[in-house]
């Protein structure tokens, strides 16, 4: 698929593998530590504002939240990678398409403030 927008797609594949492995490790470690320490699991995720202090306080559930956020960041990082690759190879169409999709994904972040 040489002429099909696939300039180094292995870069995205490698990124996806690392992100998914890291996320499941963090989330599983967090939930295991929670069960070991408290015997129960905090059900809601920490908000991004609370996450830093919770991590500093060595709260195991914060690790679970980080694992889930790392996972959700995977596709966003993949799109960013494609945008940067497109920019390096001066392919405006590639950059425009990837930026369009990235914008759609990022729009869902502020939506949370409205709901």
């Amino acid at each position: 698929m040489s002429h099909c927008f696939s300039h180094n797609p292995q870069g995205v594949g490698r990124l996806y593998r690392h992100v998914s492995t890291l996320s499941i490790l963090l989330a599983t470690l967090g939930i295991t530590a929670e069960l070991h320490a408290a015997g129960e699991v905090r059900r809601s995720l920490w908000s991004l504002q609370e996450l830093g202090p919770a991590l500093l306080a060595a709260e195991p559930s914060a690790l679970t939240t980080v694992g889930i956020w790392v996972l959700l960041s995977g596709p966003i990082l993949g799109l960013l990678h494609l945008v940067l690759r497109g920019a390096r190879s001066h392919s405006m169409r590639r950059v425009t398409l990837s930026c369009g999709v990235l914008a759609m994904v990022l729009v869902s972040l502020p939506i949370k403030a409205c709901v």
Binding site: T28, R43, S44, T64, M104
Partner: peptide, 18 residues
Amino acid sequence: VSALIYAGAGLIDAAITV
């Protein structure tokens, strides 16, 4: 896209998801 909206609305339950 939808998972980020669910996260914002507090619908992601770590005890179920992990």
